[in-house]
């Protein structure tokens, strides 16, 4: 989002050429990132691509070999307390104390930011309501399910109402109900004014909530943009699947000759046709089938996904 009056973007995070090695392994390789105020910025990458490492470097927890990090237009450092006070972190690992109750945990971490007790009490209550764990306020973490723990983890990171919230895979190993609760919560935080940096290896989540997305692999950003921009970068468009019971090579050959068609395969009674950009590819396929009197069953048409983007750039699937 941009500042409406001036019509310019306000940078919240600016990372330049960040390089981080673990011994011989290059975890971040000239990593660049710019997050604007008001965005929900998604960092999408497979396991081990360096998302957590990037966040820990941005927050000055990790040493890095090269590069600069600026937050709120100021250089980030371990003792940059005026920057730190406006950041909220939700880590990939649940970071809470087992000996404290749900309420006490949120209060403890919030207390590192907010000194005024009355104000803090309000904030803590709000954060607990926000992730809907009010019922469990006096529970010890041992008694909470994985999904509830994740929600508590989030409450601990956001209670002090930071301007910038960084969430590292907050939905890993979470039940669908908690997941939608979390995703919806992130959007609400954003509406309330927070800039969000969100990492995930689930493309659906990122597509669902992020206003801008960077795809990363092996420590590098390989593409950045809105999901539409990203999908426009690649040559493959929609994927059409048609249930077919009789199949011969002629059909395959003929279909391949149609305009915009990139590949045609037949698998498990399904004809899979991948097309490049261009509209009405589905109609063209169906026309061909009808005019040749070929009987077909169910039809599916899928728009390209971020997985297709990832596949096309890296040559491998985002997952697994």
């Amino acid at each position: 989002m941009y500042n409406n009056i001036l019509g310019v973007f306000i940078l919240v995070i600016k990372v330049d050429n960040l390089t981080k090695r673990y011994g011989n392994l290059i975890a971040l390789d000239h990593f660049n990132l710019e997050v604007n105020q008001g965005e929900i910025f998604g960092l999408l990458g497979p396991n081990g691509s360096g998302k957590t490492t990037a966040i820990n470097c941005i927050l000055s927890l990790l040493k890095y070999d090269k590069g600069t990090v600026e937050i709120f237009n100021k250089p980030m450092a371990p003792d940059a307390y005026d920057i730190k006070k406006d950041i909220g972190l939700v880590m990939q690992n649940v970071a809470i104390f087992d000996e404290l109750t749900v309420y006490e945990n949120v209060d403890y971490f919030c207390g590192l930011y907010i000194k005024d007790r009355n104000h803090r009490r309000e904030l803590v209550e709000q954060a607990i309501d926000f992730v809907s764990i009010g019922y469990y306020k006096d529970f010890y973490p041992k008694k909470l399910s994985g999904g509830l723990l994740r929600r508590l983890n989030i409450a601990c990171g956001i209670a002090h109402q930071p301007k910038l919230i960084i969430l590292d895979e907050p939905t890993v190993a979470v039940d669908p109900q908690s997941r939608s609760n979390i995703l919806e919560g992130i959007q609400r935080l954003n509406k309330a004014g927070a800039t969000i940096l969100y990492t995930s290896h689930y493309m659906e989540e990122v597509e669902q909530i992020c206003t801008r997305i960077a795809i990363m692999d092996k420590g590098r950003i390989i593409a950045t943009g809105t999901k539409e921009q990203l999908k426009a970068m690649i040559s493959s468009g929609e994927k059409i699947r048609v249930e077919l019971f009789d199949m011969d090579d002629n059909i395959l050959q003929d279909l391949k000759k149609l305009p915009h068609i990139v590949s045609v395969e037949y698998e498990d009674n399904f004809l899979i046709v991948k097309s490049s950009r261009g509209k009405n590819n589905l109609l063209a396929v169906l026309d061909y089938l009808k005019s040749n009197n070929i009987a077909f069953g169910k039809i599916y048409s899928e728009p390209p996904t971020l997985n297709d983007v990832f596949l096309e750039i890296t040559g491998k699937e985002l997952r697994d």
Binding site: L59, L89, M91, F109, L112, G157
Partner: peptide
């Protein structure tokens, strides 16, 4: 890590 990102 959480304590270390706090302004303290």
């Amino acid at each position: 890590a959480r304590i270390n990102v706090a302004p303290i």
